[in-house]
């Protein structure tokens, strides 16, 4: 067992999407430094339940940093601000005894708060559905080496494919821009041969959908890159801009 911490939590409580919400304070006593942040919240929720109070609603699923569900802003920083780490992989040893920790939901017009720390991130799904896929012939699995991909392209595509769609980039951005997410999804598909046939259609559709959903625009502040748990690079946004520009030209829109 690790050390034990006594903490004060200031947590955003909101009954439903229409409620205006407020902060409430809780004591988290005897928190083991080996706990993850979400485990700490579980313990606080146990106490709340025992007192007959409503537990804090928050999203989580894999708890191993791969699903992107555990959205929360910890001390003003999405996922808490440990480099390349999701909230579920953040450990209490990063905090010191007696600290006050403020926890808020993602705040973006395109991600409406449902309850407490839970936001609706369907806007990301709709962006994906607008073009973030490849339409392949179904059938048996193709031969492993049937479609050669250059090593550099494969590496870059893999870097982009790491995005887990958590939305921290939107949460961190002062403009609530989703460009890092969309850039990662676009770049991932446009770098491999399988993504070529729909390349232009995809760029146009995804960028258009992103704007429709009410996300802001990139002003190159770099906050997204700094909080991204998968360390997706800002370069992908430059790549997306290039991709989108080329698509406009090729489709004769400009």
């Amino acid at each position: 067992m690790g050390k034990l911490l006594n903490l004060k939590l200031r947590v955003w409580r909101q009954d439903n999407a229409e409620d205006s919400g407020r902060f409430e304070e809780y004591d988290a006593k005897g928190v083991d430094t080996d706990m993850s942040f979400l485990e700490m919240l579980d313990v606080v929720n146990e106490d709340l339940l025992e007192d007959g109070k409503e537990p804090i609603a928050f999203d989580s699923d894999c708890r191993e940093g791969i699903c992107g569900t555990c959205s929360m802003v910890i001390n003003g920083t999405p996922h808490g601000g440990q480099k390349g780490t999701t909230a579920c992989q953040l450990h209490m040893r990063q905090f010191s005894d007696g600290m006050t920790i403020t926890i808020e939901p993602w705040r973006a017009s395109a991600f409406p708060v449902q309850r407490d720390l839970v936001v609706n991130r369907s806007a990301f799904d709709r962006i994906q559905q607008s073009g973030g896929f490849i339409s392949v012939r179904s059938g048996s699995v193709p031969d492993a080496n049937a479609t050669p991909v250059a090593k550099e392209d494969a590496d870059l595509a893999m870097d982009a494919a790491q995005c887990i769609g958590c939305g921290a980039c939107v949460a961190a951005c002062k403009n609530a821009s989703a460009m890092l997410f969309v850039a990662a999804k676009l770049s991932h598909l446009s770098l491999v041969p399988q993504g070529q046939p729909e390349r232009e259609r995809r760029a146009l559709a995804m960028v258009q959908k992103m704007d429709e959903e009410g996300f802001g625009s990139c002003t190159v502040t770099g906050s997204c890159e700094a909080v991204c748990p998968k360390e997706i690079s800002l370069d992908f946004i430059a790549r997306m801009n290039r991709e989108y520009g080329m698509a406009l030209i090729r489709k004769g829109t400009v």
Partner: peptide, 13 residues
């Protein structure tokens, strides 16, 4: 794009 602002300051771990 962000109608409700954050209430807390940026203090990453």
């Amino acid at each position: 794009a962000r109608e409700v602002p954050y209430k807390s300051d940026v203090l990453p771990v």
